[in-house]
Amino acid sequence: MKKIITLILVGCMALSIGGCATEDAADSLNDTINTLNTSDSKEVMEIKNGYLPISDQVTVGEALYSFLLNPKWQYFVSTDNYQVVQCTGECLYNDKSVEAKIQFLSYDDGTFELHTVALNDIEQDESLIIEFFVKAYEDAGATDLYDDGGEDELKGSSTATSHTNNNNSTSTPPPYGDIGDVGVISTDGYDLDQYYVTDTLLDRLSQDEVRTLLNAMYAHYGYTFTTEQYAQFFSSKPWYSSRGTSMSDCESMFNDYERKNKETITAYESRKGWR
């Protein structure tokens, strides 16, 4: 039986930082510039590609990409000279979209630890954070969640921890995490070129939502929809621009994720008798 993790102690915690690192984030303009400049920094990549002692199967980056819509990463040094890696993105809480802000402290030896998690800038208590990370790792495909207890659950490194579990399941994250059980697809931002769609995800969607997900890949490359439903839907999205691109031209621009996602969705629709 999968064990539920008793792992996260949040707030500002007893880290003697003298205040939450959240308060050290720059204003929105500087924040955006810093995100662009540091999203691929060594400190960010160490955490994105690193592991918490929660699962050997899923990296921190995979877990958060599975759960957040349009995740953005940045690195900065707090006023207390702590090296902070921050990931922000949207998720659902009580059926409403909220901004999640997750901060890690990065150390020169390549290790790191979770510092704080906030929803709409409100730092969360232990029970909510446990649920947040459990669902994020589950959505990313982890089946080896551990319950080691203690402060070590907060600490991570660039290598997987040593556990006796040889399950090699592949991480295939859905695009939008829900702290509740709703599992809503959002296409306000486009990221189907960054993850693989799975049948598990599609099982959570209606027939129309599955078709919308498929059409989103064509919309991303400027396909002009003749069906009013989809023309209106995608016209409301900030990333969509109708350029009269043919379906075949769109498909020629698909990357590996999108090509696989098209195969997965159309095969799923065929099995359901929807096409």
Rank of each mutant, 00 (worst) to 15 (best):
residue 174 P to L: 05
residue 174 P to K: 10
residue 174 P to A: 09
residue 175 P to I: 03
residue 175 P to D: 03
residue 175 P to K: 02
residue 175 P to A: 03
residue 175 P to V: 00
residue 176 Y to K: 15
residue 176 Y to I: 13
residue 176 Y to E: 12
residue 177 G to I: 08
residue 177 G to Y: 06
residue 177 G to F: 07
residue 177 G to H: 04
residue 177 G to S: 06
residue 177 G to C: 05
residue 178 D to P: 07
residue 178 D to V: 10
residue 179 I to W: 06
residue 180 G to A: 13
residue 180 G to Y: 11
residue 180 G to E: 14
residue 180 G to T: 12
residue 181 D to F: 14
residue 181 D to L: 15
residue 182 V to H: 06
residue 182 V to N: 08
residue 182 V to M: 08
residue 182 V to G: 03
residue 183 G to D: 10
residue 185 I to S: 06
residue 185 I to W: 10
residue 186 S to K: 07
residue 187 T to R: 09
residue 188 D to F: 09
residue 188 D to T: 10
residue 188 D to H: 09
residue 188 D to C: 12
residue 189 G to D: 08
residue 189 G to L: 08
residue 189 G to W: 04
residue 189 G to M: 05
residue 190 Y to R: 11
residue 190 Y to G: 09
residue 190 Y to N: 11
residue 190 Y to C: 12
residue 190 Y to A: 11
residue 190 Y to F: 15
residue 191 D to Q: 15
residue 191 D to H: 14
residue 191 D to W: 13
residue 191 D to M: 15
residue 191 D to N: 14
residue 192 L to R: 03
residue 193 D to F: 00
residue 193 D to W: 01
residue 194 Q to E: 15
residue 194 Q to N: 15
residue 194 Q to R: 15
residue 194 Q to V: 13
residue 194 Q to G: 14
residue 195 Y to M: 06
residue 195 Y to G: 06
residue 196 Y to A: 11
residue 196 Y to F: 12
residue 198 T to F: 06
residue 198 T to A: 13
residue 198 T to Y: 04
residue 199 D to Q: 07
residue 199 D to A: 12
residue 199 D to I: 02
residue 200 T to L: 04
residue 200 T to Q: 05
residue 200 T to G: 10
residue 200 T to S: 11
residue 200 T to E: 07
residue 201 L to Y: 06
residue 201 L to E: 04
residue 202 L to S: 06
residue 202 L to M: 04
residue 202 L to H: 02
residue 202 L to T: 02
residue 203 D to A: 12
residue 203 D to I: 06
residue 204 R to I: 14
residue 204 R to E: 13
residue 204 R to K: 15
residue 205 L to M: 13
residue 205 L to F: 11
residue 205 L to N: 03
residue 205 L to W: 05
residue 205 L to Q: 09
residue 206 S to R: 07
residue 206 S to P: 04
residue 206 S to C: 07
residue 206 S to Y: 08
residue 207 Q to A: 15
residue 207 Q to E: 14
residue 209 E to F: 11
residue 209 E to I: 12
residue 210 V to W: 00
residue 210 V to K: 02
residue 210 V to H: 00
residue 211 R to C: 01
residue 212 T to W: 10
residue 212 T to R: 14
residue 213 L to W: 05
residue 213 L to M: 13
residue 213 L to E: 05
residue 213 L to N: 03
residue 213 L to S: 05
residue 213 L to P: 01
residue 213 L to R: 04
residue 214 L to G: 00
residue 214 L to C: 05
residue 214 L to Q: 05
residue 215 N to L: 12
residue 215 N to P: 01
residue 215 N to C: 11
residue 216 A to M: 07
residue 216 A to K: 01
residue 216 A to Q: 00
residue 217 M to I: 02
residue 217 M to C: 07
residue 217 M to W: 02
residue 218 Y to P: 06
residue 218 Y to L: 07
residue 219 A to Q: 00
residue 219 A to C: 04
residue 219 A to N: 02
